[in-house]
Design a protein around this nucleic acid. Sequence first.
DNA 1: CGGCCGCTTGACTAGTCTCAATCAGTGTGG
DNA 2: CCACACTGATTGAGACTAGTCAAGCGGCCG
Lengths: 259, 259
Amino acid sequence: MCVRKHMANALIGKLQSFTPLNEEDCRALEQASAHPYHVGARQDLIRENEPPRGVFLIVDGFACRYKVVPGSGRQIMAYLLPGDCDDVDVMGLDVMDHSIATISSCQVVLMSFKTVTSLMRRPNIARALRLCTLVDDATLREWLANIGRRSADQRLAHLFMELLLRMQAVGLAADGAFKFPLTQQEIGDTMALSSVHVNRTLQLLRQAGLIVVKNKKMRVLDYVGLMRYSDFKPNYLHLLFRNNQKISDLARMGGVEVS
Amino acid sequence: MCVRKHMANALIGKLQSFTPLNEEDCRALEQASAHPYHVGARQDLIRENEPPRGVFLIVDGFACRYKVVPGSGRQIMAYLLPGDCDDVDVMGLDVMDHSIATISSCQVVLMSFKTVTSLMRRPNIARALRLCTLVDDATLREWLANIGRRSADQRLAHLFMELLLRMQAVGLAADGAFKFPLTQQEIGDTMALSSVHVNRTLQLLRQAGLIVVKNKKMRVLDYVGLMRYSDFKPNYLHLLFRNNQKISDLARMGGVEVS
DNA sequence: CGGCCGCTTGACTAGTCTCAATCAGTGTGG
DNA sequence: CCACACTGATTGAGACTAGTCAAGCGGCCG
């Protein structure tokens, strides 16, 4: 197991939370993500129907997967937070079936297929990356249930609770607060609501004393309340795989049986 | 490449449409799926929070992934049609984050982790199974966009078009018609609509001369119309990977640029 | 024949959307 | 330093899609 903490590198931190990595693994990952480049806010990294050029890794900032539905704007289908990356198997695809874009300005690495292939030859890394994909899939399913079944207020509460946990998992939340660069329009694009309704719903959550949003930062004032409010069950994030004690505790506090 | 046609085994047929398989590959797959067992309609195969016992493969019938959202019924998040199977990586999870249940009565295989591991040692099979997962993910994203962005009538039209293509891809649709064992309630659970609204919406699509549903069979009367109606783009099914000429033609007829 | 499940229809309700106007914060050029 | 422009947040009013409740119908099975 790699002894040094690599929280400077969110990817390493995240993978280590899934599976132990040795020195060699860490070196390989550091090398692979050594040269990020800067991308401004609201820029496409790759568009639907384009052939994948490699595997994107977000080192810093918020990015998202999205699709445009003609006549109804766009649907955001996932957030890519620092340490998150594309499905490693996109290499196998001829063309992308969705687009990826930055939300805030980002530090991005585009790993070549060769790089990814050599990373995947390391069993620990391969295992960790596969688990990442599994969690991404589970998150997508949870979003489907969220959008399909919950009312606007519960939907937003659920999303914010997830963001808090995910940001905490990569060490980017302190005291319930984290960077939150999303516009209300973008929140609406995510949760299938109009920006007007997002606005009114945010006021509701604020009045309920659950959250505060200000200066592109969100603070969760009462995460137990937020979990209850949205019926949030953290199981889909599979946090108990992870060796961050604080997160596991938090997960348990949801009042959920996590066997 | 395996010369014999294996359409008796939907899985082999499906994998072959992604990548050529040799005799050995086919034998291994046949062995792995040799002993399906029968499960009645509306039975859970595995429930959320249970540890996975293996990888499910649907040999015949309709099954689905779903989650129950307290206070709002259930959300179906995917259909498993004949030849479809669980994500091979569920083996890596401690507990399921969703349930899997039959819709109609089914023939099911539960492949042991050992079996799956040995299948994954065959490069062709591994590649094909990974592509399956990628298509499943893309389908999930498309459903999210569908539920998030489209009106009830477009949503249903889109779903039916997808089902037609998928059933055709495994040789289970003839002349635009295929088995359709879903109740209106289940369609609603899938597309996040009430059963009452599903009922009225189906009448709309019927009156528009697009589909007929009768005796647990659906017939698509005008698939070009259905595609237009729902703005269906078949790209997410990645059909052009597949060696079924008819499907590729159909995909192109959507009027879509599929590079 | 009776019971049950699923389909159908009607009437009413409500959550969310759309349109439109105003306000606030930030950055820019004169 | 101020006027202006632009983007995003906020508020109000009215319209509409889809949900809920409730009753009746139809076909299948024991």
